[in-house]
Design a protein around this nucleic acid. Sequence first.
DNA 1: TTTCGCCTCTTTCCAGCGTAAAGATTAGAA
DNA 2: TTCTAATCTTTACGCTGGAAAGAGGCGAAA
Lengths: 204, 204
Amino acid sequence: MSRQKSQPYHHGQLREALATSGRTLLEEKGIRGFTLRECARRAGVSHAAPAYHFASIDDLLAELATRGFDELAAAMTAEAARADGSATGQLVAQGIGYMAFAAGNPALFQLMFSREANRLEAGPLAAASEAVRALHGAAVEAAIPHASGEIKQRMTDFAGASMHGFIALVLEGEIGGKDSSRALKARGLALLSAMAETVVRVGA
Amino acid sequence: MSRQKSQPYHHGQLREALATSGRTLLEEKGIRGFTLRECARRAGVSHAAPAYHFASIDDLLAELATRGFDELAAAMTAEAARADGSATGQLVAQGIGYMAFAAGNPALFQLMFSREANRLEAGPLAAASEAVRALHGAAVEAAIPHASGEIKQRMTDFAGASMHGFIALVLEGEIGGKDSSRALKARGLALLSAMAETVVRVGA
DNA sequence: TTTCGCCTCTTTCCAGCGTAAAGATTAGAA
DNA sequence: TTCTAATCTTTACGCTGGAAAGAGGCGAAA
């Protein structure tokens, strides 16, 4: 990612390059260890160059979080496409995609749900996170089409909370600290199954 | 908290004072806005004074997180004491205490579950967080005394995940962004009820 | 009681940080 | 070709966490 002779001054793709180097840097050093200067260094530009593309370090972090939400939505959709067409199958598959993304990008996942990235109300970050919520909400409602609006809301809360809470606690080491990766996946799957069962039972 | 004539040089209670000023500072500025120097300033000492009591800023943050876990355990116990003696009542009450603590100390709660505080395996932080887990695990097992060990584990995962996930998503604004505080409490209570019902149903 | 050593805190210093301002360079339009 | 705006570098500032050295105060040993 360092500057080449073919790009002696204008980088041309600096915004993209910063997002790329920023993402790896974030996973390597964590949120507190993330610095704008190191990010610029890895992109091969001076430490002040990012200022033109991002108003502040928080702005860059918000961009990373936004891209994270986009990718999370894609992971949920992709996993759902691989599952059978049943409503509960879709719901569980979405959860698998959600957890797999979180496990593969723990620091980014933490940033996305950390409130450190200042999400302006109408900003792209809020839209991207809303898209994930919509995806999940649709899956829950599809599983309980005849339920009342209130039940649907409660079951969406319930499904989202258990799915998110489980992987969050796993990443934190609060759950399955000594478990193998395989055993952990089984626990996750068991949780998603119990969640889906409850949703259809209450919402029937 | 500034230095008085009665304590011209030796502070005497500096460790405590730093933990106190650190806690308010954390809630005011968030994890990323937390600085050791401002913390020392508020305690009325020079910026290098904390070094004697805390090896690094991460060490101070770990102390704050540890105290947070102690307080969280106390909040869960206190709320459970106010509830009826039924096993599910205890489980729900613990959840209320958990959520109330998180809502009242959002930045601290986030720090506790942020992996930023480097939790050494055998450190006091790990012990304090383990105590909270034990408290919750005992409540779940008391609700399903005849269940197998595997079911108990799965239901502990399940209960902990939904409880933690819900309040985490609320703090993040992912759930109930427009709701009033009252409505939000109702949603939380509904979630805890659904959680407890599922635990006793599956574990029966 | 005096002295001495250790604990606690301050002062000073350093490199690194985010950000602002000004200068340099380039691309593309006129 | 020349001019202008966009992009990047250089420089500078106040802040940060931490290390090192010095000062002050307490308690034990004489």
